[in-house]
C-alpha cells in the first residue's frame, strides 16, 4: 500500500470537503448577509453622504465600486477565518486528522466555499452599484479580465483567512483579522486617491497589495488610473501579490492543519 497522498487522492478528498463546505455555508445565511450588508451600507454611505465632497474626477460611484468589492471580499474572508477557527475546535476535525486523507483537503473545502460565497456577494454588490448609477465603460474582454482578477484575489484572501483561522486559538482572535482586512482598504486608493493622503500613509497605500488590484479593476472598468501607472504594470503587481499570498497560504495552511496539537 502506498503511504503517500497522490494527486487523485487529494482531488477526491477535496471534492468531499468542498461539498461539506458548501452545505455548511448554505446553512449559515446569517454570516453571509452580515458580511454583505456592511459593504453595501458603506457604499451607499460613501456615494450619497461623502461622495459629494470627494473630488476624484467624475462620479464618485464610478470611483468607489472596486474598493467596495474588495472590502466585501475582506468581510467575506473574515467569515472564513472565523469558520475555520470554529471548525478546528470541533470533534469532527479530530476525526479528519486521524483519517488517511490529504492534509489540505479540509481547508480546500473552506476556501472553495468562501470563494462561492464571495462570488454571490460580489454579484450582489455589483447589482446594487448598477442600481445607484455605476456605469462601467468596459467590453467583454475587460469584464472577463476583471472577473478573473477578482476571482484570484478572493481565492488568495480566502486562503489567507483560512490560514489565520488555523493560527487563531479562538473565534474571537480570528474575528480580529476581519478588522485588519476591513481597515486596509481605507489606506489604499479604494476611497480616495493616494496623492491626497499624508506622506507616511501615502507610501503604504501605494505599495500595499489592495491598491494594484483596485487600480487594475478601475482601469478595466473605467479606463482611469489615480496613480499614473500604466494598467499593465498595475495588473502585474496585482497578479504577483495574489499569487504570492495564495502560495504562502496554501503551503502554510496544509502544514498548520497537521501540526495543530490542541
Amino acid at each position: 500500500m502506498s503511504t503517500a497522498t497522490t494527486i487523485s487522492d487529494a482531488v477526491l478528498d477535496s471534492r468531499v470537503m468542498i461539498r461539506r463546505g458548501l452545505i455548511r455555508s448554505a446553512r449559515d445565511p446569517e454570516a453571509f448577509f452580515t458580511a454583505l450588508a456592511l459593504p453595501v451600507a458603506l457604499m451607499l454611505l460613501f456615494v450619497y453622504v461623502f461622495g459629494g465632497a470627494m473630488s476624484t474626477g467624475g462620479e464618485y460611484v464610478d470611483y468607489v465600486v472596486p474598493g467596495i468589492i474588495l472590502l466585501c471580499a475582506g468581510f467575506g474572508a473574515g467569515t472564513t477565518a472565523v469558520a475555520v477557527a470554529d471548525d478546528m475546535t470541533n470533534g469532527i476535525v479530530d476525526r479528519f486528522r486521524s483519517m488517511p486523507i490529504a492534509a489540505g483537503s479540509v481547508i480546500v473545502g473552506h476556501v472553495v466555499a468562501s470563494v462561492a460565497r464571495n462570488a454571490i456577494a460580489t454579484a450582489l454588490v455589483i447589482g446594487v452599484a448598477l442600481l445607484i448609477g455605476w456605469r462601467p465603460d468596459a467590453g467583454v474582454a475587460e469584464w472577463a479580465a476583471a472577473i478573473g482578477l477578482l476571482a484570484l484575489f478572493v481565492l488568495a484572501i480566502s486562503w489567507l483567512a483560512a490560514t489565520v483561522g488555523l493560527l487563531a486559538r479562538s473565534k474571537d482572535a480570528a474575528n480580529a483579522f476581519t478588522m485588519v482586512l476591513a481597515f486596509l482598504p481605507y489606506v489604499s486608493t479604494a476611497f480616495v486617491p493616494a496623492h491626497t493622503l499624508p506622506t507616511a500613509l501615502r507610501g503604504f497605500a501605494e505599495h500595499q497589495p489592495m491598491t494594484p488590484v483596485i487600480e487594475t479593476l478601475r482601469g478595466l472598468w473605467m479606463g482611469t488610473s489615480t496613480t499614473g501607472q500604466p494598467l499593465a504594470d498595475q495588473a502585474w503587481w496585482a497578479l504577483g501579490w495574489c499569487a504570492l499570498i495564495l502560495v504562502v497560504s496554501a503551503v502554510a495552511s496544509a502544514r498548520l492543519f497537521r501540526r495543530r496539537t490542541t
Binding site: 461539498r19 461539506r20 452545505i23 455548511r24 469532527i92 479528519f96 486521524s98 483519517m99
Partner: peptide, 29 residues
C-alpha cells in the same frame, strides 16, 4: 490512520450536517 477510527470525548461528528450527510461524507473519504 488507515487502521484506526476515533470516537472522541467531544463527539467527532459535523454538527451542521445530518446523520446521512455525515455518514456519506466519511464513506466517500
Amino acid at each position: 490512520r488507515g487502521a484506526v477510527s476515533l470516537t472522541g470525548q467531544y463527539a467527532a461528528v459535523d454538527e451542521v450536517l445530518t446523520t446521512r450527510e455525515n455518514l456519506t461524507m466519511v464513506a466517500r473519504l
